[in-house]
Structure formats: C-alpha cells, structure tokens
C-alpha cells in the first residue's frame, strides 16, 4: 500500500516566522516609541482585525453568514462597564468575563438562529442584535437609551491616560494574537477540514459524519466570545457606551465584512490585508464624510464581482506565499 502523507505549503516558512517575531517585538514596544493617538489607533486596528479574523472564520470557512456580531460586541462593552465600572471587579477578569458572557449568550442565540439557513440566518442574526439593542435601551441600570460613562475614579485607577492607552493596547494585542492563533490552529486541525466541507456542502458533510450543528455552534461561540472581548477593550478606550454605538451594525459588522471581502474571504491573511487597506482608506477618505462608506461599499461590490478571491487571493496567485500555511497537499 502506498504511503501517503499530508504536506503543507511552507515556502519561506522560517522567513515568515522571523518576520512575525520581529513584528511582535516592534508592536509590544509600541508604547515606548509611539504617542497616545498612535496607541489608540493601533488598539482600534487590533480590535477590527480580531473581529475580521473571526468573521472570516464564520463566513469564509464555516459558511455562517452573521450580520449580528454587533450584538456580542455590545454585550462585551456593557459587561465590562458593569463589571469593572459599577461592581469594581479588577480590569483583566472583567474583560475575560465580558468575553465569557458574550460566548455563553451565543449558545442559546445560535440554537435558535441555526434553524434558519444561509441568507435567512444572516437577517435573523441581525434581528437578534436589534433585540439586544432594544433590551439594553430599556435598562435604567445600564443608562437606558443614553448609555453610560465609565466612572472616572475607576478609570484613573488604571493609570493616567497615556498609561491606560498603553495598557489597553497590550490587552488588545493579546486579544488579536489569541484570535489569530485560535483561527489558525482550528483551521489546521481536522476541524478546519470539517468546516470547509460544511461550507461547500452541508448535506454531504453531514453524510461524512461531520456534526454540522455542533461545528457551527462552536465557531459561533468562539467568534462571539472574541467579539465580546473586542467590545470590552474598545469601549474601555472610549470610556463611553450607548446602545446605538454598542450595537452599531455599520461599525461592527458592515466595516468588518468589507475588510474580509476586500482582503480575501476564506483566507486568514485576507483579514490582515483587509484591515490595513481599510484603515488606509479611512485615513485618506476622512475628509469626505459619509462618502467614505459609499466608496468602501463600491470597492467591496467590485471586489466581490471582479475579484472574489480578494487582494490576498491575488497576491497568493502571483507568489504562492502563505503567511499562515493551511493548504494541504497529499504527497506519496
């Protein structure tokens, strides 16, 4: 019997690893070479990237098209404001608990919504996020419709504004690295194969023994937990939260979808490239008001129609480089 084994495309592998190492050191040391606004921008980018990586895992790999991830961003934000701000729970446990709450909430939500297929799930998840918004806006404890500010005294206990910016940046960096690692290891494992099989053909995949419901729920849970973490750290940085900003579909989902589509759906690197492009565009188009979203929408549509593999797909086709080697090849 011939001896087959699975090989991955590990072209330039050592180079890529060294690159990552250097980049990581550079990023960890950001507070020592960057100013406060750079750290805030970097924190925001890290949050978006973590959301994009997770949305890519959901839609690009598991075929779960959610337009409702803002629900969990909002829950994370409100959870951290309640835990750290109102109840005096220490910072790090508060953030972790915010992620946990968002992840746990994803279980009942997923169980209900996964009764809907494909496109119907998409809008169903959006309805769910609206419910979260309306319920939050009903709660006087959470400041009802006008939201709440993070108590200044508690904020000061994390340090002055520069120290806080550095602290939040390190936390955001940890979150995004965790998100990338989770996604990468997940996709590398046999579960990753099961996900892709589900996305391509749910019925056939379940015929091969893939538990479609459980896989979808697992991905949804993890993605939602990460959304909760991101919500927690980003709203801590803003020191203010309100229902409309916490559960904003444009901010937390539309932007993320555009990032993933432009960067490359179904490619881990796509989220990274997409996030960089997104922030560059936002920087260039900052003076154009809402034209910036119009232009972003046009770019996303054109990408979907003319270049569905996204910018990273194009780069990959030319160079065959994978920063996160996932492609499997059977060799004899």
């Amino acid at each position: 019997m011939p001896n087959y084994k699975i090989e991955r495309n590990e072209k330039y592998h050592t180079g890529v690893l060294i690159g990552f190492g250097v980049l990581l050191v550079f990023l960890v040391l950001l507070p020592f070479w960057g100013d406060k606004s750079t750290m805030r921008l970097a924190t925001e980018m890290a949050g978006y990237l973590a959301l994009a990586v997770m949305w890519n895992l959901l839609a690009g790999y598991a075929g779960v098209m959610s337009i409702g991830q803002q629900a969990f961003v909002g829950v994370g934000g409100y959870a951290v404001f309640t835990l750290a701000g109102l109840w005096g729970v220490p910072l790090i446990p508060s953030i972790l608990l915010a992620g946990l709450v968002a992840g746990l909430l994803a279980i009942p939500v997923g169980l209900i919504l996964f009764r809907l297929n494909g496109a119907y799930f998409a809008i169903g998840s959006w309805v769910m996020a609206e419910i979260f918004l309306l319920l939050t806006a009903q709660s006087d404890y959470l400041g009802a419709g006008s939201g709440m500010s993070f108590p200044t005294a508690v904020a000061k206990s994390f340090g002055n504004s520069t120290e806080r910016a550095a602290l939040f940046w390190w936390i955001a960096l940890a979150i995004v690295i965790a998100a990338l690692l989770i996604a990468y290891l997940w996709l590398r494992s046999s579960r990753g194969l099961a996900l892709t099989a589900m996305r391509d053909d749910e019925v056939a995949a379940s015929g091969l023994g893939v538990n479609v419901m459980r896989n979808k729920l697992q991905v949804f849970l993890v993605a939602s937990a990460v959304a909760g973490l991101v919500g927690a750290i980003l709203f801590l940085g803003k020191l203010r939260i309100s229902p409309t900003s916490a559960y904003d579909v444009n901010e937390w989902t539309a932007n993320i979808i555009f990032i993933v589509v432009i960067g490359g759906l179904g490619r881990l690197e796509g989220a990274v490239v997409g996030t960089i492009i997104f922030f560059l565009l936002r920087g260039f188009l900052a003076d154009f008001g809402s034209y910036y979203l119009i232009i972003l929408g046009l770019i996303a549509i054109l990408t979907m129609l003319k270049m569905p593999q996204g910018v990273w797909g194009l780069i990959y086709d030319k160079t065959q480089i994978e920063l996160f080697p996932l492609k499997r090849k059977i060799v004899n």
Partner: peptide
Amino acid sequence: RTVGTNVLPPLLVTFGIAIILQNGLLQ
C-alpha cells in the same frame, strides 16, 4: 452576476448596495 452562485456573493453585494444607498441618502 451573482445569481446561482453560493449564498454569500448576493448577500455581500446587496449589503454593499444597502450601505451605498443609506450613505448616499444621508449625504
């Protein structure tokens, strides 16, 4: 151009149109 493909392209494209219309009207 997106009919008959899988579920994602039409959803993403109509989402893009939605954002464009919304912000166009806002403008």
